[in-house]
Amino acid sequence: MNTKEHTPLLLLTAPQITSPVTTQVIMRNVLIALAPSVVAAILLFGVPAAALLLAAVVSCVGFEYLWCRIRKTPNTAWDLSAAVTGVLLAFNVPSTLPLYMVVIGSFVAIIINKELFGGIGRNIANPAISARIFLAVAFPVAMTTYAAPAMAPFADVVSSATPLASSAAPTSLVNLMLGTHAGVLGETSALAILAGGIYLLATRTITWHIPAAYVGTVCAMSLLTGRDPIAQVLSGGLLLGAFFMATDYTTTPTTNRGKLVFALGCGLITCLIRFWGNLNEGVAYSILFMNLLVPHIDALTPNTPVGGERRRQPADGEGR
């Protein structure tokens, strides 16, 4: 028998190994998936886009860091979730927006929407989306002054309509794919968003349920009402919303069935607003509205455990 003295052995509950995937790894994957759209935004809109992205990311991470320092809670600023919020927020504003406005947006996203609800994992609404809606209400003119992309055959900075506005001339499919049309930073190039979406699916950061059901619902509604489904899917914030914002872990239902219901609701509300509402764009409002319904969707769409299919038999034998 080994009798020499040992330092106490560690006692831990099983399992003793864990996967290398952490919150930070997931958020890094989302940032990588956003990279093509970042490049597209800077190519299309130039220095103002880069400045907005930088301001949004720095202010989001900064607000989170300050909050954690002031509240003396564990510092979550480096888990990259605030950086993702920053990029998404910048993607939701036009390139002409003054920088101070995007910083206000960051404050709304991080402090009001996330930290006041308990920080990461606790927020009810998607931070970037609520900040976008806040900015649209607070600064309606600045939020709809779209600059024509630098590479597009338009005049210089003008207040040009998005392809969804009823006054806009029809935009060609190529323009929609490349993003050479007016719009907010991240909603223009469908190609870049699709590339990022495929990356998210390939790395299993997200599942197909929400993007497929969201886009599918919008396609179906467009066909039913005699609109061009491809134009509806490629224009506005639909792809950005379907791949990056409606798939936010915290603000979506738990089970795959719940996710399908959630995405169906997003699609329906988007179409209602776009087709018959007073606004050109419905993605942000639809996701925000469905965010609020998540607890109810969760309650109605639980998983059925293996062996739980039937009702419990009465007075069954206790464990042998």
Binding site: L10, L12, Q16, T18, V21, T22, T23, I26, P74, T76, D79, S81, G119, I120, G121, R122, T207, Y249, T250, T252, T254, T255, N256, P302, N303, T304, P305, V306, G307
Partner: peptide, 23 residues
């Protein structure tokens, strides 16, 4: 050593990988 615990981000990985389909 196991890595430190952080806040749940509701990613549903546990739900989607449970062999018994528990939550």
């Amino acid at each position: 050593q196991l890595p430190p615990t952080t806040a749940c981000i509701k990613c549903d990985a546990c739900v989607n990988s449970c062999p018994m389909h528990l939550t």
